[in-house]
Amino acid sequence: MKVINILLVEDDELDTIDIKRSLDKMNILYKLHVAKNGEEAIALLKSCPDTSSPTFPNIAIIDINMPRMNGLEFLSVIRSTEEWKNLKSFVLTTSAEKVDREAAEKFGISGYIVKPLKLNNPSSIDAFNLMIDLMNMKD
């Protein structure tokens, strides 16, 4: 089984633990790269020599509300950067607001998940399925 690199951009430690616990239950091999905000995430992406490098994330899970650079700003940066713009991204947020969802969907995201990310949360289930599909395609 191939190791999947997951970039998690999330400032809340509890949420990070929560996501880890959910991913652990998914029966996949993964490596989680955690950035506490958009700036850290960019630094993390920059540390990879290119998109084919073994540490470059296959998938990104991005929170919206974060200090310094929020999720929407980060999405805007990766979508306007040639080598990162195809990065499959999911937004994971507490906000069920229409405005946030619409703003996020403008960046061509693969899914919008309202927290908590749980296998019994309807909005999570679709996202999980999609994530698994995407990850399997990598195999």
């Binding site: 809340d12 509890l14 949420d15 633990i17 929560d18 507490t94 927290k115 908590p116």
Partner: peptide
């Protein structure tokens, strides 16, 4: 306000 509450619930 909801985030920390949910955090506590999670823990």
């Amino acid at each position: 306000l909801k985030a920390p509450l949910r955090g506590i619930g999670n823990v």
